[in-house]
Nucleic acid binder design. Structure first.
Lengths: 198, 198
DNA sequence: TTGCGTACACTCACTAGTCAGTATACTTTG
DNA sequence: CAAAGTATACTGACTAGTGAGTGTACGCAA
């Protein structure tokens, strides 16, 4: 029974997402993805030109939902900016405690594909991180920080550092340490913005 | 003419190091390493039990030299602690500008081997990062910071975050941003230690 | 009845690891 | 001290399996 092409495609991406995130890009074969999606490799190649295309689709599918989740953590908290930042990193630590957690899919993909500079998945990863940084910057600007862009960048560095350290040491407390640093950096900056906008 | 075993072993590790760092663990075959070392795969398997052993040897060989380099950056600077930190991250940015730079070998290996929890290479990676953190903590304690361990951890988070962001965006300026954050965190802490030690 | 979506069976290159055997150097023994 | 034996360091050819990607045929829907 031929299904709607978009539905099948989504099923393939969902299978790829589970496997690529869980085991890594190179560790997962196209056959594995096809089997998990419940169809043959030939069908997969009908919907995707190559494995590289599939990898790019995997990260593209993770972009928006990830940002919604992280910003959801932030916006769910009623309180000061530092309260919100604390929540973000606390939630990150919570994720890190889950047995199926395998770090940041974007960073791990960047690490694996480092030798193929123009790869669409790498562009997707870079764009994703920049979007997240911009979201932070927007929140920081609204809260009146003097240099919201700089602070957003610093928080992103702590964010990615926390991912890396949690992965390296399998210890979620690194996320909390990162949260403390983020709070401290932002606290030192508060309320200066009123003088700014000339 | 049979050579000294240690010499050959070192040549294999050197070849593995170049290839694993340059292309990634899974992207490099045992044949590739053997060819680069100028011997046959069978000889490589005479010196190493498995590819996993070779991976572990690769990271083990990078541990000490890496720490010496980073701490060398720090100790080479005559000046305040913040001057030293600025230098560390500036040197990091300089590395990132090199065309052969491929991020942090330890972090990339951790990302690739994430599905094999007990892997000796992962332990080596974790131990390496902890050692570097301890080196920072030692310097911070000597400089009189109130909580050198916490600050060292925060600096390591920025350090690994800078690696990740530089790799993601191919932009060394992230290391400089991380350096600014590190300096700010440490500056807020200075000289409190005199009151501490009860 | 066209063409979209699917499956089976296949290619060919590559992968970790092994088998059996060899040349050289060191050690033991008559 | 010379011959025989043994450990060391090494090789080429191989196995058994996996990798991405493809040629072709078939069924179903509009």
């Amino acid at each position: 029974m031929p299904k709607n092409a978009a539905v099948t495609r989504d099923r393939i991406v969902a299978a790829a997402s589970k496997l690529f995130y869980g085991h890594g890009i190179r560790a997962v074969s196209v056959d594995d993805v096809a089997a998990r999606a419940g169809l043959t490799k030939r069908t997969l190649y009908y919907h995707f030109r190559s494995k590289d295309d599939l990898i790019a689709a995997y990260l593209a599918a993770r972009d928006e939902p990830t940002i919604v989740i992280v910003m959801g953590w932030m916006d769910a908290v009623q309180g000061t900016l530092t309260d919100k930042l604390e929540a973000v990193f606390a939630q990150m630590a919570r994720l890190g405690r889950h047995p199926k957690w395998r770090g940041c899919g974007f960073l791990r993909t960047a690490a694996e594909l480092v030798t193929t500079p123009g790869h669409p998945a790498l562009k997707a990863g870079s764009a994703h991180k920049k979007k997240l940084e911009a979201e932070f910057a927007g929140r920081f600007a609204q809260a009146g920080l003097a240099d919201p862009d700089m602070r957003a960048r610093q928080v992103m560095l702590l964010f990615d550092g926390a991912f890396s350290a949690m992965l390296t040491h399998r210890d979620p407390s690194y996320a909390e340490a990162a949260g403390q640093a983020a709070m401290e950096l932002v606290r030192g900056e508060k309320v200066k913005a009123v003088k700014r906008r000339a």
